[in-house]
């Protein structure tokens, strides 16, 4: 704390506080109570879209990375192409392709229209979740490829020599070490995924960003909602960073 509070820092903090006070006094914040409920709902939707897409995307990324690192050509090549295509095209385009493309394709099949899934497929969020998960899978597949390759081969061989089955080697030695090695990169990628979530507002998913746009359209207040939104995203990004730092502290020591 002593190192942080140097004289010039105190001045800078005072200037930042003064700026905050100035913003609080001169700018318009009277819209907040009216939109607070909607904002919280949007925040909740952003968070679970983020969490679910990371879970699904990561579940896809592990086989994608494994296929590229150690698989035979017949799985390695398609996995590599999947990652290249996802990483080579803008996420916004992928979201629109999935939403408008699949969304216009599905209603043409009566079997889909009459299925149990149809009430969900008529909403926008399944398409958003699919697009976000695939994007995360594509980027993390590449990360996991490097992580799987970086685990020393001798460890895997000695585990096999001890009589562990292939699955046990993967579960107890290969995957945990690859995960620990990938953790710092995954933290950064998760923040990138958070920054990608407002794109789903363009396909009518009401998350926190689209609430702010709505405030802008309703009240013609431009800066205040955007500034508040920036603060919210910074807070979430900070929490993600803290979480990953804790994970790293717990799991990276003891890497061979």
């Amino acid at each position: 704390m002593r190192g942080f509070l140097q004289p010039h820092r105190i001045g800078l903090i005072a200037a930042a506080l003064a700026l905050c006070v100035y913003a609080a006094v001169t700018m318009r914040w009277d819209w907040i109570p009216r939109y607070a409920g909607l904002g919280l709902e949007g925040l909740w939707r952003t968070l679970w879209l983020l969490a679910l897409s990371i879970l699904i995307g990561f579940a896809m990324a592990v086989p994608l990375g494994l296929a590229q690192a150690a698989g035979p050509r017949i799985v390695a090549v398609p996995a590599k192409w999947f990652c290249t295509i996802i990483r080579g095209t803008p996420l916004l385009l992928q979201i629109w392709l999935i939403y408008f493309g699949l969304g216009s394709l599905f209603p043409q099949f009566p079997s889909i229209r009459q299925s149990e899934l149809w009430p969900y497929l008529r909403q926008a969020w399944p398409y958003a979740l699919l697009a976000l998960s695939m994007s995360y899978a594509g980027y993390e597949g590449e990360v996991m490829r490097g992580a799987f390759k970086s685990v020393p081969h001798g460890q895997l061989e000695s585990a096999r020599a001890y009589g562990l089955s292939r699955w046990a080697v993967f579960r107890r030695i290969w995957l945990p070490q690859a995960l620990a090695r990938a953790l710092p990169t995954l933290g950064g990628e998760t923040v990138l995924q958070l920054k990608a979530t407002p794109l789903v507002a363009t396909i009518t998913v009401i998350e926190i960003y689209s609430v702010a746009s709505r405030v802008r359209q309703d009240t013609f207040i431009i800066y205040e909602p955007l500034l508040l939104l920036a603060l919210v995203y910074m807070a979430i990004a900070g929490l993600i960073g803290l979480g990953f730092r804790w994970l790293e502290k717990r799991y990276t020591p003891g890497l061979g």
Partner: peptide
């Protein structure tokens, strides 16, 4: 690096 590009674009564009 913490704020989505979309919001930065809108903010910087208007501001």
């Amino acid at each position: 690096r913490a704020v989505p590009e979309l919001i930065l674009i809108l903010l910087l564009y208007y501001a």
